[in-house]
Simulated scan of single mutants.
Amino acid sequence: MAVDLGRFGVWHQAEKWGPELASGLEQLGYGALWLGASPDADLRDAEVLLASTQTVTVGTSIVNMWRDDAAAVGASYHRLEEEHPGRFLLGVGIGHRERDGAYKSPYATIVDYLDALDEAKVPVDRRALAALGPRVLQLSAERTAGALPYLTTPEHTRQARETLGRTALLAPEQKVVLETDPDIARSIARDYLAGYLQLSNYTSNLKRLGYTDEDIENGGSDDLVDALVLHGTAVEIADGLKAHLEAGADQVVVQQLGKEGPDLLPGYEALATVLF
Rank of each mutant, 00 (worst) to 15 (best):
V3F: 11
Q13V: 09
A14I: 09
E15Q: 13
P19F: 00
E20F: 00
S23K: 10
G24P: 11
E26F: 12
L28K: 02
L28Q: 07
G31Q: 07
W34F: 15
W34K: 12
D40N: 11
R44G: 08
L49Q: 00
T53N: 14
T55A: 14
T55M: 04
G59Y: 05
T60N: 11
S61R: 01
I62G: 05
I62E: 08
M65H: 06
M65F: 06
M65P: 05
V73N: 06
G74Q: 09
A75K: 12
A75M: 03
S76I: 00
S76E: 00
H78E: 03
R79H: 04
E81G: 06
E81K: 10
G86E: 09
L89Y: 02
L89H: 02
L89D: 00
G91Y: 06
V92E: 03
H96K: 01
D100Y: 11
A102Q: 13
Y103I: 02
Y103W: 14
S105G: 07
P106K: 04
T109M: 04
T109G: 02
D112R: 14
Y113K: 02
L117P: 03
A120D: 09
K121T: 10
R126M: 11
A128D: 07
L129C: 07
G133A: 12
G133V: 04
R135W: 01
R135D: 06
L137M: 04
Q138N: 05
L139G: 07
S140I: 03
E142T: 05
E142S: 12
G146L: 11
P149L: 00
P149Q: 02
P149T: 00
T153F: 10
P154R: 10
P154F: 09
E155D: 14
T157K: 07
R158H: 07
Q159T: 08
A160N: 09
A160P: 08
T163N: 10
T163G: 08
G165F: 08
G165L: 09
G165R: 11
A168I: 05
A171N: 04
A171V: 01
E173I: 00
V177R: 01
L178Q: 12
E179C: 11
D181G: 12
D183T: 15
A185D: 14
A185H: 13
R186F: 11
I188D: 00
I188W: 03
L193I: 05
L197N: 10
L199T: 05
L199F: 06
N201A: 10
N201Y: 08
D213L: 02
D215P: 04
I216T: 10
E217P: 03
G220E: 10
G220R: 04
D222A: 15
D223G: 09
V225S: 14
A227K: 14
A227Q: 15
L228Q: 12
V229P: 11
L230I: 13
L230V: 12
L230H: 13
G232I: 13
E236M: 10
E236W: 09
I237W: 06
A238D: 03
A249F: 05
A249P: 11
D250L: 03
V253F: 00
V254A: 04
Q255H: 03
P262L: 04
P266I: 08
Y268L: 13
L271R: 12
A272I: 04
T273E: 15
V274A: 08
F276T: 01
F276K: 04
